[in-house]
């Protein structure tokens, strides 16, 4: 059996949607309403009561028990049933409503944000598309005008040539056919070449654009690399090389010619102090 045949046998609602795939939480859906009408609503107390009666009747039919024993057995089954139901319902009831709503709200916010982003992108794309369409329309109109102008000239030229062929053929139809065929083929070849030239020019423009873009990006990359080199170099410079001295030195009494050197240092200092004072004066 083909897949399409299998699909056709699946029971479908009025709108053609398979009944098993209809979302159960969609209240506006007619199919769901039909399913809902088939459900019987049973409360927990009713369920407990029904179970208790069923157990009681079952035990009475199968065993000879006193009324007290029957009551005890029914109570035991009822309490165990409630415990089991409570245990199984904990997972659902464990999520507080506020937290659940918060999560839902967060999801909603995310979806809204994504929708906004998508909307902006779509708007931008539409804007671009509109701009492109306008440009294309303008270009198209321009091309049509050019084509019409060129076509008119070419048509006139062609008509002139055909007239010339007729005028020079002396009524020889075979010769006329041959010459007109030659003329038509030449004209068609010319049109094809023009079309190819136009396409080539468009491709060249695109290639030029790409080359300019690549040149810009290459230049930008080079500048970035240069900056990185400078930064690396500057980092090295900043480190510097430490001096062997941790404190100011000065002459030592053990130096050769200590007294002479001391006098010389004093003289150099005095000259520099005078220079500095002269500058500040």
């Amino acid at each position: 059996m083909k897949v399409s045949e299998q699909m056709s046998k699946i029971p479908r609602g009025d709108d053609g949607v398979p009944e098993d795939e209809v979302p159960k939480g969609a209240p506006e859906d007619d199919t769901v309403q039909q399913h809902a009408r088939k459900l019987n609503l049973v409360g927990s107390s009713q369920l407990t009561k029904a179970v208790a009666e069923s157990v009681r009747e079952g035990l009475r039919d199968q065993f000879e028990l006193t009324q007290a024993q029957l009551n005890a057995a029914v109570r035991a089954v009822g309490s165990r049933l409630m415990l089991r139901l409570k245990a199984q319902s904990k997972a659902v009831r464990g999520v507080p409503k506020a937290a659940f709503l918060k999560e839902v709200q967060a999801d909603k916010d995310r979806i809204d944000a994504a929708r906004e982003t998508a909307k902006r992108e779509l708007d931008a794309m539409l804007e671009k598309l509109k701009l492109g369409q306008e440009q294309n329309s303008l270009r198209e109109a321009e091309l049509v005008r050019e084509s019409q102008a060129t076509g008119q000239v070419e048509d006139e030229q062609l008509a002139g040539r055909i007239a010339a062929i007729f005028a020079s053929s002396d009524g020889d139809s075979a010769k006329i056919r041959e010459k007109i065929t030659e003329l038509a083929l030449g004209s068609m070849q010319g049109q094809r070449e023009k079309s190819i030239d136009a396409q080539m020019a468009e491709h060249r423009d695109q290639v030029d654009g790409f080359e300019r873009r690549i040149a810009k990006l290459t230049n930008s990359l080079e500048l970035t690399e240069e900056e990185l080199k400078k930064m690396a170099k500057a980092k090295n410079i900043d480190l510097g090389v430490g001096s062997i001295y941790r404190s100011v030195q000065g002459l030592s009494g053990e130096d050769n010619d200590y007294e002479t050197k001391k006098e010389l240092m004093s003289s150099i200092f005095a000259a520099n102090l005078a220079l500095q004072k002269g500058k500040t004066a």
Binding site: G242, S243, I244, Y245, R246, S247, V248, Q249, G250, L251, S252, G253, Y258, K262
Partner: peptide
Amino acid sequence: ATESTPSTSSGSQSSSPGKKESGVLY
């Protein structure tokens, strides 16, 4: 290189006041 022996004659071996105190480059 290790620290040079401080001079005894100048009488002013302390580093100058200010933030630069970790060495003297001549």
